[in-house]
């Protein structure tokens, strides 16, 4: 959490770093919200859409190929925009990556 001064440690990143051929992209805003927020995206559609747009744009700007997360709803929210824009940027749940090597 970028707001706190405790030493940064991300469990998902730690796990992802154990997977071969993954490069973690650093974003302009390390951990800003995707704008979903459950009923928030219904109650405050315009703002929710704008937050999402900015979040996705940050990934595109830094050349990400995949957006991954532990939270399904964040991913679904961002995927909606990517689909609509026919973007080549894909979303993938972290479990899909971590299980990817298992036959």
């Amino acid at each position: 959490m970028s707001e706190l001064t405790a030493p940064a440690f991300s469990k998902p990143v730690h796990l992802l770093n154990m997977v071969d051929d993954i490069e973690i992209i650093h974003l302009e805003r390390v951990d800003e919200c995707c704008g979903f927020g459950g009923t928030f995206c219904v109650a405050e559609e315009a703002v929710s859409v704008k937050i999402r747009k900015d979040r996705v744009a940050d990934h595109i700007l830094h050349g990400a190929e995949y957006i991954t997360d532990v939270d399904m709803s964040c991913l679904m929210h961002m995927e909606g925009l990517l689909h609509r824009d026919k973007s080549t940027l894909k979303v993938i749940h972290i479990a899909e990556i971590l299980n990817g090597g298992i036959q």
Partner: peptide, 15 residues
């Protein structure tokens, strides 16, 4: 309607 103006991301509590 003001309390609905939050995605509940929690950044406010952390700053």
């Amino acid at each position: 309607d003001l309390p609905f103006a939050s995605s509940l991301c929690g950044s406010c509590s952390n700053v």
